[in-house]
């Protein structure tokens, strides 16, 4: 396949960026998208130019490191995959492909297609854990957990923290990411103890870091490479009780205008 690529180039966080155009030739349809970029980079290096910086690591869709906006879609045109799992057979010979970094105020560009997602770490540091120390815990089978709850917890825990949700959201909200972690833990008896405190702390941190508010457009779910289910998302999360029972009752009274989960959580308590 022969393709034209329009790629965002930006020297560093402080510099202005711009699109540049490149041609690649003889790409196998069985190659992955990132292998196609590897080939372009090798060509650039050999012709004395600077290769394009992009994040990637496991190349099997689980580490969450890769992060490209391709033709206007986070992780490209295919559904339920990350950029590294996208294969060139999804494109046609002669196509022009536009490649951008994540666009979100809370994810500043480091270089070219690489962004700084440390804000997600900070949100989880604010409360995305169960407060147990190593050792001194009960036997693993001491607390039976209904299979359905464990499965739902796992559905939400499949989040890879890639940032596609916030990058896709027109408000730059990280609500799907936050809700996934909150729900995953709140579904389990171990996590219920700190449920409300955790949710509040994480949402407060999210607001502080410059993420926008949720207006329930659902764009995050549509682009999530792990198909984090809608019931864990935005305002509907709270109404489906995944945050905490206290949040739930309050949220249900608020659902006429389910605009900001953040403020919903604050109102209670």
């Amino acid at each position: 396949m022969n393709l034209t690529l329009k790629i965002w180039r930006q020297k560093d966080a402080k510099s202005q960026g711009k699109f540049e155009e490149y041609k690649v030739q003889n790409i196998s349809p069985d190659s992955s998208f990132l292998e196609m970029l590897d080939i372009l980079n090798n060509d650039l290096i050999m012709s004395g130019k600077e290769p394009i910086a992009f994040d990637h690591d496991c190349r099997e869709g689980i580490c969450g490191m890769c992060s490209l906006h391709i033709n206007g879609h986070a992780h490209g045109p295919d559904s339920e995959i990350t950029t590294c799992q996208l294969h060139m057979r999804k494109f046609k010979d002669g196509d022009t492909i536009t490649i951008e970094p994540w666009r979100s105020a809370a994810f500043p560009v480091i270089k070219d297609l690489v962004v700084d997602r440390s804000a997600y770490d900070k949100i989880l540091q604010a409360g995305g854990f169960i407060s147990v120390n190593t050792g001194g815990v009960p036997d693993a089978n001491a607390i039976p957990i209904p299979k359905a709850d464990a499965d739902e917890s796992m559905d939400a825990a499949a989040c890879i923290g890639c940032g596609a949700c916030a990058a896709t959201c027109k408000n730059g909200s990280a609500m799907l990411f936050v809700a996934a972690r909150v729900s995953s833990l709140a579904k389990l008896p171990q996590g219920k103890v700190e449920g409300a405190r955790r949710a509040k702390a994480m949402v407060a941190k999210m607001d502080e870091l410059g993420f926008g508010n949720c207006t329930n457009t659902g764009a995050c779910e549509a682009e999530c490479p792990k198909a984090i289910p809608s019931r864990t998302s935005p305002a509907s999360t709270a109404s489906s009780s995944t945050l905490s029972s206290r949040t739930k009752s309050r949220t249900l009274t608020q659902t006429t205008e389910p605009r900001f989960l953040g403020s919903v959580v604050y109102i209670d308590n």
Binding site: T134, P144, S184
Partner: peptide, 22 residues
Amino acid sequence: NLIIDQCVAQGVPFAREYGGLL
């Protein structure tokens, strides 16, 4: 064995049987 106990306490959603056990 301690590892499995620890991970469950942390909220790792291991696969379970219908009876609720691992």
